[in-house]
Design a protein around this nucleic acid. Structure first.
Length: 900
RNA sequence: AGGCCCGUAGCUCAGUUGGUUAGAGCGCUACCUUGACACGGUAGAGGUCUGGGGUUCGAGUCCCCACGGGCCUACCA
């Protein structure tokens, strides 16, 4: 069979085929009854409105690497995909879309609107899951979930009712964060604080019945229309006499009291503060303490309302301007100062959040937080990187109640009904027929929906069938791991821990790996609106999904990642390198097969399983070495991945495949593959294929497409469907071989030394010359002797003469020395003496410095008495080597300087 | 205001309990279109680890201070 392999790696030609195959064959369908240890992971559900961005790509790459790695190591593996209904975003998207069609969603009515959103969801939602299939994530698509599906909704209602019955959910009127654009209340987390340069307006409030003023300072003059008091500190001598008197609220001509409250900071501003209970959290508290009226002066969309007198109808910022002008005109504006303040912004609409009095549903968090803190403290959940624990603890210990309700139509409707007679509240899993308190049948359901994060908070168990003890729940809960970005530690991770512990009594996952953010080359956050984001699908198309995955793996780290295209080029090059290594194997195999050998004979699974093969009872050195390196790399990858050090694992595979397998191994065995002695050639082929196959499996979690494609070119067991279901290579005991490692290292040093001389001599790369090798170590000599032909080929020599030390002429020609050996080219044209002298001097200087510091250390009695034996021995050995090398280099330099 | 992180080669980053001349990728220099691969090969140049102080036989690694950059939490009008 002649195999056709394209000259260059073309991901576009192989990826779609396998992506489709993996989904169609349902290769990654989990079986809760399957044997083996369990590895389960649920996806951080992406927004149904979204499309895949680089953050998902990183997240999903890490998840998929670990999933594939576990699966290949025989774990009963589940990677559960799904989507989030994303209340605010989705509603915004559909509202905008309707507006474009000239439809006001409010006129449609709730039911029709919801119908439209579902329709939109079916048609255009879930682009991400399509993209996930495209990039070959090894999910179990049969278990895909959606946070707003009927089955998820049932769990949400159940949980809500339980928490209500436990008095952990309650309804209350208080000051909340209101977004005048989204027209809904927001939780504290949805308000982002941004430092902005603003002003402090100093306003004079006339004291009633006098010609005095009290000056108050405010950052938001428009709220003064709702002032119901002025507060001063009770101990403040400046204002003591005024306490209990009244001021005339400018512009409103309303008398309000001067009160005293400990909360006033005498140092700030003027020491007198206007109190607007309906528009400021602090003032709200003061207002409640002093039973002050709460006057709301704004509408829900950020305009001034009828309580705002002549300003009614103005937008809040226009009102501010107008008010300042009017105050100035009346001579009541004392001064304006610059003032930096952290302002609350709605993270969705980017508008300034308005504190507003409102009746909402809340969840009491303290009782939920305590066990969640303890679980992390006790290490029941491992948090990586560990320093995020502090952030978690800090937030959890100061946690505040969670505003659950949202004034939206898209989401889980709050399962609470109010009776028309007395406004009694009935909270139930299903719509009740009558009021639970008075039996009235005039019931109306709460129009609001729940915060999207409330349903996401149940995700690890709701998706597995809880509250039923389903086989999935029993097998896969607690999940093994959660991988997500640190930016949703509070939004999501903390809440899952709290709700998971509360409802299942178990942690929702045993570990959390919080990855970094991918930033632009300038170090900024990528932003769709600024156009600084990159589209991973587009990059995948250009470089290959495998290259993208590899790049993300190799750059993944605790700190944020800067995206540059250099990296992905290098990953693409790596893929191409592997592709071409495969090409070498198969193209050459075609020639070999002409002699009658079948691929089956060289590379059948059972043949590969027994590698490395020996010749005359001995495994050839280079094969022993390669398998030893393979074993080392496998161990490195296993250790690194179990600690989420993706970059280390990826780098290890890269180094092995490119540096060891391609650069040395393939080059070394090339002649053997063509060896006239067919038995020898067959052994070489068998070892080569076995190593290649193992290396493919090692690489598979990182580059699934490329490895799947090439794996299928090798003979596989009957019925074998995918490399993804094959075994991850194991570092077998008989592969480990320390002496092969050190022997090949020595040969590599010899070759490198010879090549370096060639380069200095600027020899024609094809010109074969004679070289000499000398050593005082008998085993090194034998080793070089035994591998002479390989060295000759690597260094393009006509002959490598092995000469006894005493016959080695270091006085002429070009010489390179290490402590262990010397090599020399008996070449008439000498090296550029000036350059060589400079090189020697530099080398001597470095060695000199290193050896002197060792001598000093070793001469120090304190060091000798305190340092571990191992360190001392190591230092002594290195020093001895350095002294020999130093001596050789000095001799050489002396010759050059004295000589010609 | 409190807390956290970072500052290592021209660029982007590794560097696991402190221990032997500090690593990678990209870029750079020289040579090479050699039958797997120019998305390549070979050989090289290039950091003393932001600065200062301390602990230690020994510090890129631990502690303190300063400078520079980033992030999170927080109701200072």
């Amino acid at each position: 069979m002649a195999r056709e392999i394209a000259k260059a790696y073309e991901p576009q030609r192989i990826e779609p085929r396998w992506a489709e195959y993996w989904v169609k064959e349902e290769l990654f369908k989990a079986d809760p009854g399957a044997p083996g240890p369990v590895f389960s992971i649920v996806i951080p559900p992406p927004n149904v409105t979204g499309s895949l961005h680089i953050g998902h790509m990183l997240d999903h790459t890490e998840i998929d690497i670990l999933t594939r790695w576990h699966r290949m190591r025989g774990y009963n593996t589940l990677y559960l995909p799904g989507m989030d209904h994303a209340g605010i975003s989705t509603q915004r998207v559909v509202v905008r879309k309707l507006a474009e069609e000239g439809i006001d969603y409010r006129k449609l009515g709730r039911e029709e609107f919801e119908r439209r959103v579902w329709k939109w969801k079916e048609e255009s939602g879930g682009k991400i899951t399509e993209q996930m299939r495209q990039i070959g994530e090894s999910c179990d698509w049969s278990r895909e979930k959606f946070t707003l599906s009927p089955e998820m909704s049932r769990v949400v209602r159940d949980v809500f009712v339980r928490l209500y019955e436990e008095k952990l959910i309650y309804r209350e009127t208080r000051l909340v964060n209101w977004c005048p654009v989204c027209l809904t209340v927001l939780s504290d987390l949805e308000v982002v604080h941004e430092e902005r340069q603003g002003h402090l307006w100093h306003i004079k409030y006339p004291v009633a019945g006098t010609d005095q003023f009290v000056v108050v300072a405010t950052t938001r003059p428009e709220t003064m229309l709702g002032d119901t008091a002025v507060a001063v500190h009770p101990e403040d001598e400046r204002y003591k006499a005024l306490i209990g008197k009244k001021v005339l609220l400018p512009l409103m001509k309303r008398e309000i009291p001067i009160i005293s409250d400990e909360m006033v900071d005498r140092e700030f501003g003027t020491g007198a503060v206007k109190i607007t209970p309906a528009h400021d959290p602090n003032d709200f508290e003061v207002g409640r303490r002093h039973k002050l009226p709460e006057i709301d002066v704004m509408t829900d969309d950020g305009h001034m309302n009828s309580n705002a007198g002549v300003y009614a109808g103005l937008d809040r910022f226009e009102a501010r301007k107008k008010i300042v002008e009017d105050l100035k005109a009346q001579g009541l504006l004392e001064k304006i100062t610059e003032h930096a303040t952290a302002i609350g912004i709605c993270e969705r609409s980017r508008t300034i959040v308005e504190p507003r009095i409102s009746t909402q549903w809340f969840c009491k968090m303290k009782p939920l937080a305590e066990p969640a803190i303890a679980a992390v403290e006790r290490g029941e959940i491992r948090m990586v990187p560990e320093n995020r624990r502090e952030e978690y603890f800090n937030w959890m210990r100061n946690i505040r109640d969670w505003t659950l309700s949202r004034q939206l139509w898209w989401g889980h409707r709050i399962p609470a009904w109010y009776c028309g007679e007395h406004q009694h509240i009935t909270v139930a899993r299903e719509a009740p027929a009558k009021c639970a308190t008075c039996g009235s049948t005039k019931l109306a359901q709460d129009p609001d929906v729940l915060d999207t994060w409330f349903s996401s908070g149940l995700w690890p168990f709701s998706t597995l069938g809880w509250p039923e003890e389903t086989p999935d729940f029993k097998a896969y809960y607690p999940t093994s791991l959660l991988i997500t970005g640190y930016e949703i530690l509070f939004f999501w991770v903390a809440r899952m821990i709290m709700l998971g512990l509360h409802f299942t009594g178990k942690v929702p996952f045993r570990a959390v790996y919080l990855h970094s953010i991918v930033r632009t080359p300038n170090g900024e956050k990528m932003s769709k609106s600024k156009g600084t984001g990159i589209d991973p699908i587009d990059v995948n198309r250009r470089f290959g999904t495998d290259a993208m995955r590899f790049t993300l793996a190799v750059t993944a780290s605790v700190s944020d990642v800067i995206w540059t295209e250099d990296r992905i080029q290098s990953s693409r090059n790596f893929a191409n390198k592997i592709w071409n290594a495969a090409r070498f194997l198969f193209v050459n195999l075609n020639k070999f097969e002409e002699g009658g050998t079948k691929l089956e004979e060289l590379a059948a699974p059972e043949v590969r399983a027994k590698a490395p093969y020996a010749i005359g009872g001995k495994v050839p050195l280079v094969d022993a070495w390669l398998f030893a390196r393979l074993a080392e790399t496998i161990e490195l990858v296993n250790v690194a991945l179990s600690d989420y050090r993706f970059h280390e694992a990826a780098q290890g595979v890269y180094q092995f495949f490119w540096g060891d397998f391609c650069d040395w191994y393939i080059e070394w065995v090339k002649p053997e593959l063509q060896n006239a002695d067919r038995e020898r050639a067959i052994v070489a082929w068998k070892n080569l294929f076995a190593a290649f196959d193992a290396a493919l499996r090692l690489l598979h979690p990182f580059m699934p497409f490329l490895t799947e494609e090439l794996w299928h070119q090798l003979p596989q067991k009957a019925g074998a469907k995918s490399i993804a279901l094959d075994r991850f290579p194991e570092a077998r005991a008989n592969w480990k071989n320390a002496s092969a490692l050190s022997q090949v290292a020595l040969i590599q040093e010899v070759v490198t030394a010879l090549r370096a001389i060639r380069a200095e001599l600027k020899l024609d790369p094809k010109k074969k010359v004679t070289a000499e090798f000398s050593t005082v170590d008998a085993s090194s000599r034998d080793l070089v002797q035994a591998n002479r032909t390989a060295i000759e080929r690597f260094a393009v020599l006509s002959e490598l003469r092995i000469v006894p030390r005493e016959q080695f002429d270091a006085k002429s020609g070009a010489v390179r020395s290490t402590a262990a050996f010397d090599v020399r080219f008996a070449y008439s044209e000498t090296v550029d003496a000036t350059a060589e002298k400079a090189r020697l001097k530099k080398e001597i200087e470095g060695l000199q410095k290193a050896s002197t510091s060792k001598e000093r250390q070793l001469g120090d009695e304190t060091f000798r008495s305190r340092a571990p034996e191992k360190i001392i021995k190591g230092l002594e050995a290195t020093l001895a080597e350095q002294r020999i090398e130093l001596q050789k280099l000095r001799e050489r330099l002396a010759q050059l300087e004295s000589g010609a």
